[in-house]
Each structure stands twice: as C-alpha cells, then as structure tokens.
Nucleic acid binder design. Structure first.
Length: 249
DNA sequence: GCGACAG
DNA sequence: ATCTTGTCGC
C-alpha cells in the first residue's frame, strides 16, 4: 500500500501511534555510532498548571566544561493524552520545535525519560533520536518497565534492568546512597557508553547537568509565558464577593 | 482479576 | 507533570 502523506504528524489516534511506534522501532541503532562528542543537549517539558499548554526547552552544554553553549524553547498545546508507553507523542512536538531553533546541532542528546526500556523498545529518547538521526540517551527518574533491582550503594554502581531476561537498560547509582536513575539506549549509542556519559554528567547531583539545567529553563519559561493568564482567578478572602455573601445570610 | 504504569 | 508547608541540615 502507498504511504499516506502526513500533514499533521502528531494528530494520531492511539492505534496509529502504536503502529508508527512499531515501524520506527526497527530503525533504532543500539550500538555506538557517534563521533567525537563536543556538545551535549538536554531536553525537557513543563506543563501549565491550569491549561493544556506545554513548554519545551533545550539546553546545549559544552561536553568538557558543561558550560551552556546555547538554549531555546517552544510553546505548544497538548495534542495527545498521557498514556504510559506513548509518552513521546505528547512531549515530542514542542521538543522538536525547540530543537529546530538551535543554531548548533548537538552531538548527543540526553532525554528525561526512557530509551529502549519500553514495552515496544521505543521510548521518547528512541523516537527523538530516530527522527533527527542523532545519538540519544534515555535517562529516567523512575522506571516504566523492567524488574526492580537496586545497585550497590556507591556512585557508579549499576545493575542491569531486565525484562523477561532481556537487558533493556541499566539502573545506575549516580551519587552515593542516592536513588538511582534508569539509563537506556536511545539511538546510535551503546548502553555502556550511555552510562558513562550519564555518570560524567552527574557531577554533584543525582540527575545529569543537562536535565537539571533544562528543567530550570523550562520552569523559567513557563513562569515568563504563563504569568497573568490564569483561566479562573483563585478564590481567596480578598476577592470574595461580600455583598453576595451577606445577601444569603 | 489485580497491580503497574516514563512525564 | 502539577498541587503543597514546613522542616531538617549544611
């Protein structure tokens, strides 16, 4: 059958999303296919408290100094609900817009979510990596699937994340005695290399500097762009309608 | 049937 | 993800 022209790539039904996921999952490369990494980007999305607005931000860091090289952001309206396993269809649209605004192309992208540690081996990091054909790493704060297992207490300790005996990622302790993170291949990078980079990015905190800086930026943008336009003003003692209140007493 | 379930 | 107060500690 002939492939249909996609004019609105993100207006998909759940069934279409599952099918697309299955098609794209075949393109994921789980081995190292990356050159010298000079720049690393982090991507993240924030949600407006009382609307379906989303804001995505990208922060590109110098891989050696971890200094910010460039950053960008984009606003969007959620077009897809949050369904565990179809996460990328909700967050990728604004992330892609933010990435398109960049002047430099990052050599590696660290995502806030899973790579192949996913039911159909196609988490957010894989989706983003395949679309741009850029090396990506999935680094989640919690797991989506896989048998729960604790690595040793020391920073750098890992334990394989297993799904029916298959290694789909690593549970990596990035700081002594601190909750681990879940690392998995996104695209064009091996699990071992992915863990090395994540550990290298976790200098002082549990999460990679890329995710931390992007999280900061995304919240900042949300505050800047969404201040003053709340649909319903909060009910406080200051704006109670006293005349209406008294008429009912 | 019951629990789990990235952000 | 977001809501949310105080609290413990360097």
């Amino acid at each position: 059958m002939k492939p249909q022209v996609i004019t609105h790539p993100w207006s998909l039904s759940e069934e279409q999303a599952l099918q697309l996921q299955q098609e794209l999952a075949a393109k994921v490369i789980k081995e190292d296919r990356l050159g010298e990494v000079k720049s690393i980007a982090g991507v993240d999305v924030a949600y407006d408290k009382d609307s379906d607005k989303l804001i995505a931000a990208v922060v590109v860091l110098d891989a050696t100094t971890l200094e910010v090289i460039e950053q960008s952001s984009a606003e969007d309206v959620a077009q897809f609900p949050y369904i565990p396993g179809l996460f990328s269809f909700r967050e990728l649209p604004p992330i892609i817009e933010a990435l398109k605004k960049l002047q430099v192309t990052p050599d590696l992208i660290v995502c806030d979510g899973q790579g192949i540690a996913h039911p159909r081996r196609f988490g957010l990091a894989c989706h983003l990596g395949v679309i741009f054909d850029i090396p990506t790493i999935g680094c989640g704060k919690t797991r989506l699937i896989g048998e729960h297992c604790e690595p040793d207490n020391a920073r750098g300790s890992t334990v394989p994340l297993l799904d029916n005996g298959e290694v789909i990622g690593s549970v990596l302790r990035t700081q002594d005695g601190i909750r681990p993170v879940y690392v998995s291949t996104g695209h064009r990078i091996s699990l071992a290399t992915a863990c090395q980079w994540v550990l290298k990015l976790c200098i002082k905190y549990r999460l990679p500097e890329t995710t931390r800086k992007t999280d900061h930026e995304v919240r900042k943008q949300m505050k800047i762009r969404c201040s003053g336009d709340s649909p319903s003003s909060p009910l406080t003692l200051c704006n109670l309608d006293h005349s209406l209140l008294e008429s009912k007493l």
